[in-house]
C-alpha cells in the first residue's frame, strides 16, 4: 500500500510530530514499506478463528465489596502541578 504525501502530513499532525518538507518523501516511503510488510499477515486465512484475547485463558478472580476507608489524597495530590482545596487544578478543558 502506498502512503502519499498528504497522508504522511496528516499522521504527523495527529502524532504532534514536526517534519520538514524534505523529509516527507522519505517518511512516506518508510511508512509504505512498514504497511506492506505487515500486510503479509493478510495471506493467512483467519475466517473461522476467534481473535486471541489472552495467552492463557484462566477465569478472572474476584474481590469482595468491603470499602477501604483510607484517605490517600495528600500523597496523590503531591503529583498535581497545581491544587486548591483538595482538587487537582488543570487548564480549562471545556469550550
Amino acid at each position: 500500500m502506498k502512503i502519499d504525501k498528504n497522508t504522511t502530513l496528516k499522521i504527523a499532525r495527529l502524532a504532534r510530530i514536526k517534519i520538514n518538507n524534505n523529509e516527507i518523501a522519505d517518511y512516506s516511503k518508510q511508512l509504505s514499506n512498514i504497511i506492506d510488510w505487515v500486510q503479509q499477515l493478510n495471506e493467512v486465512n483467519t475466517d473461522q478463528i476467534e481473535p486471541l484475547k489472552k495467552i492463557v485463558e484462566i477465569p478472572a478472580t474476584f474481590k469482595g465489596d468491603e470499602p477501604e476507608l483510607k484517605d490517600y489524597s495528600q500523597d496523590i495530590l503531591e503529583n498535581a502541578p497545581e491544587k486548591i482545596e483538595n482538587y487537582f487544578v488543570v487548564p480549562k478543558v471545556v469550550e
Binding site: T61, S73, N79, N86
Partner: peptide, 28 residues
Amino acid sequence: STKFGLKPNTQVSLVDAAMPGMLPVINE
C-alpha cells in the same frame, strides 16, 4: 468507597490514581 458527596479526592486509591504497577481486581 463509592459514597457520594465526600471531600474531593479522599476516595481515590493508588489503583484509581493509576499509579505505576497498580493492578485492577474485579469486584464480584
